[in-house]
Design a protein around this nucleic acid. Structure first.
Lengths: 261, 261
DNA sequence: CGAGGCATTGATCTCAGTCAACCAGCGTGG
DNA sequence: CCACGCTGGTTGACTGAGATCAATGCCTCG
């Protein structure tokens, strides 16, 4: 087996030790944006302290959620925009047959619930995957604040545009026909999002189950599993449980000719 | 063949006659929002004339595009938000292997190019599918206008949220595993969007090629074709070329247990 | 009227879904 | 403390849906 690269005891140990501890930001105690550890991610880059000050008036609430706990539910009245401070969440929609369909995954620094704005009602259900801290931003108050501070006014548009950009690249991802392509694109998307947060793009924990990955990608659990083993045999990744190390990022990209920007 | 329902000469004729002519809005000659025929679609419902007035200051430009013509390209600097006034467009991304991947379809009343806001550069290419009229909204000027008119201020957020809602439902659509499910969901999505415009939800023209449908849905052209024939044999649809009539909307929905809201 | 693009259909083969067994980790409770 | 059962993950054998290859038909446009 020339190409085969099984995870050594050592690498496995690395995976387990690093994944959750080293990359997750330290818990935040303060609810104000100035001191929030995901601030730079959460808010579009070039905001000065000047711009941030009005946001202090929002008096944000940060809540903790345990894995599986619902953050907001489909049908709830839209009152807050939710910013993930730490941990990870999923948003889902219920299908007619009762099974849930994953609509997206959200890491620290991501927003959730923006879809509620248009109709005044949420159209998805958000659930914590990890122990997660989520910042509740009261929308009405945000509107009031941004109205009077011109510099902070583009904030929402910026944030929403980012969401649209990401959704777009996910739509392209899901337009791929073959399971390995989709899964590779999915891993690369996660990798890139980790990089954007200053975390390692090559080694991280998958906060979601195989079933959830499959639901999102439109492929079955077994195929997710098999394809991951395939990637491992090809030497693209090493893994241990939910920990993943991308050992050959370019190879992975090249093998499935993707370009998720 | 008990269930078989081939398109009669008569129904075919209906399809051809109605599809493009009856449903498309009449061409707009005026560039101001007050008199634009897609105004109610383009702008969130409850805007009064009062609210609309400031928008006149935008002095919008409407441009015509012929089928295949590029409206904006991946990499272009973000200057405009594009509102489709008539016709239909697609947005695409180029994959590494050079083939293009369809990221979305846009009907009259839809916006395009919102993804450019975040980075200041467009991340997709927009192309006309029909003869299309597109309204170019200069973003900087829009920001200036909305800054001084509080009622018009939520406009952007509203519009972007709608985009996010729709993207979300498309993500769910693409998370479906089987080709007939996806195609059914796709048709129902189109149907619903037609209904939202006051057009017939049961009879319309597909402005895109089978290949483009396939690219978007992640299935091959042949499968698109075969699945459409399947739908026809089951009595769910009738079709002639790019014209479609949904003869059994509930049946289509029920058979593939979807609930695209 | 002919050419070329688009759509449909058929035959074959491959990949992913299905069904089922098995394993590892974990919390519960004896 | 270990036995137990449960959930989540992996693997195998088989089947079926969809991709591929190829041919034909249809419509549009020059």
């Amino acid at each position: 087996m020339p190409k085969l690269l099984p995870p050594t005891k050592h690498s496995v140990h690395l995976l387990r030790g690093q994944a959750p501890a080293a990359h997750a930001p330290a818990p935040c105690t303060n609810s104000h944006c100035e001191s929030c550890c995901v601030g730079a991610l959460c808010l579009p880059g070039a905001l000065s302290d000047e711009d941030l000050r009005p946001l202090a008036a929002l008096s944000l609430v940060t809540r903790r959620f345990v894995p599986g706990e619902t953050i907001y539910a489909d049908g709830d009245r839209f009152r807050f925009i939710y910013a993930v401070r730490s941990g990870a969440c999923k948003t889902t929609m219920l299908r007619a047959d009762g099974r849930e369909q994953v609509a997206g995954f959200h890491l620290a620094g991501d927003f959730m619930g923006l879809e509620g704005l248009a109709e005044g009602v949420h159209g998805t259900t958000a659930t914590a995957l990890d122990d997660a801290q989520v910042c509740l931003i009261p929308y009405q108050r945000l509107v009031a604040v941004t109205a009077s501070y011109p510099n902070a006014k583009d904030l929402m548009a910026h944030v929403m545009s980012q969401e649209i950009v990401h959704d777009g690249s996910l739509l392209v991802l899901l337009g791929l026909t073959e399971a390995p392509q989709r899964l590779a694109a999915f891993l690369l998307d996660l990798s890139q999002r980790h990089a954007a947060r200053g975390w390692s793009p090559r080694e991280f924990r998958l906060p979601m189950s195989r079933a959830e990955i499959g639901s999102f990608l439109g492929i079955k659990v077994e195929t997710v599993s098999r394809t991951l083993t395939l990637f491992e045999r090809r030497g693209f990744i090493a893994r241990r449980g939910r920990g993943v190390r991308i050992t050959d990022l370019d190879g992975l990209r090249a093998a499935y000719d993707l370009r998720i920007r």
